[in-house]
Nucleic acid binder design. Sequence first.
DNA 1: CGAGCTGTTCCGTGTCACGGAACAAACTTT
DNA 2: AAAGTTTGTTCCGTGACACGGAACAGCTCG
Lengths: 240, 240
Amino acid sequence: MLDKAVTLLETFRPDGGTYRLTELAERTGLTKTTAFRLAADLVRLGLLERTGDTYRLGGKLFELGSLVPRRQDLREAALPFLQDLFEATRETVHLGVREGHEVVYVERIHGHDVLPLPSRIGGRLPLTCTGVGKALLAFSGADLTEEVLAGPLPSLTPHSITDPARLRTAIEQAQVSGLAYEEQEAALGVSCIAAPVFDGAVAVAALSVAVPRARYRPAQLAPAVRTAALGLSRVLRSGA
Amino acid sequence: MLDKAVTLLETFRPDGGTYRLTELAERTGLTKTTAFRLAADLVRLGLLERTGDTYRLGGKLFELGSLVPRRQDLREAALPFLQDLFEATRETVHLGVREGHEVVYVERIHGHDVLPLPSRIGGRLPLTCTGVGKALLAFSGADLTEEVLAGPLPSLTPHSITDPARLRTAIEQAQVSGLAYEEQEAALGVSCIAAPVFDGAVAVAALSVAVPRARYRPAQLAPAVRTAALGLSRVLRSGA
DNA sequence: CGAGCTGTTCCGTGTCACGGAACAAACTTT
DNA sequence: AAAGTTTGTTCCGTGACACGGAACAGCTCG
């Protein structure tokens, strides 16, 4: 029952799509009758909304999601530094945390020009294809690194690193410099510089700035990213 | 079963509190056995997390909440304008939508100095005590206005408007000027200017800037708020 | 050592979720 | 216009499974 409910909610894709009853039943593998009853219950609880014969995720879900600690707390603490970074660079800024072998984006701010990136607040991407992911990976312990290097390396673009040896040197480079670089590995035409955020010795998050290749000036961006990450680390250490 | 699950999730307060099993059972009114089994299921699904004997909301909930359309879409479209407004004023900026007789905050950005405000992303406040709320109320139809004026008027501070007549004139003023003002009605020492965001003729959202009383300069703030709201309205009209 | 907490397991009872079948309404198709 | 197809919806008998009281285990008190 609960499982089915979560399955149903999870079938909704990021594109904000709306589904009809029959479609929901097909995608979830539930009987039409069960999907009907379940959807009605979810609507009653506010987790789903229904207009006419189409369903869409409900506002209550947004409210519940906003209560999750280690997300909202982190976001709140990070926001001022993300703002600083945005003002200094005027480029798209990310904040993400690690969850398994993926990065989950907690915040993403940008101006009027929106880059065609696969990143999305609440969305997941492979650690190995993103700047934020590589920064997290480089400071999450050797065990995790080996685990990830052992498995198959996914790719989002033809530039994504799929050779374990190359990835290993990239990670080692990040460990010395404290910065992770990514060039068109997540989206064509976009490069990225990221830095880990520490709470003590372990990286609890990472932030990055993503830049169209045409405006990519590492020498100017790197210090800004580093400054923001260090500032946030300091606040987290003192606040906790 | 579903009802109980939602009840359990909703008992978690915004303060990011963590509860133990017995505490959960008490607050939800469930049997300890039921709470135990339910919590275990929720942990298995990722909606709850457990460390030791304390429970806290899980990351999956954050991810699901981020998928809710009319929240994420609006936020994405609004962000550049909120950034503009923040840069122009360097004060706390809000974006909210109406839900019943309350405002739900969708976004809130600020710099390093954080005002002690009751507003929170995903949080609800009475329409009548906040700038964003009054802007929404003023442009959501006469029926809603009468409904709200008929009911009891809640108050967050001694300055909150509790006299229906006073509130009515405030709303009428907002309708002519296109701006809603709020002075210490949500938090002591903080004033606020808000403007509605239109998608066609009806207000779908409102944005505001909240300022410590000491720095409150309506003449400078008002045009900035108005500009941001109009810009966002234009984008929503063309995008939809 | 026992009293009072935890969280956890066991188990018999009763309920309620389940899905097949039948239904009404709104469409195509013929 | 009638037959066919697909939609969302209701009905209902069956069986699984959620339920909560009771008993258990591990802990910290006095």
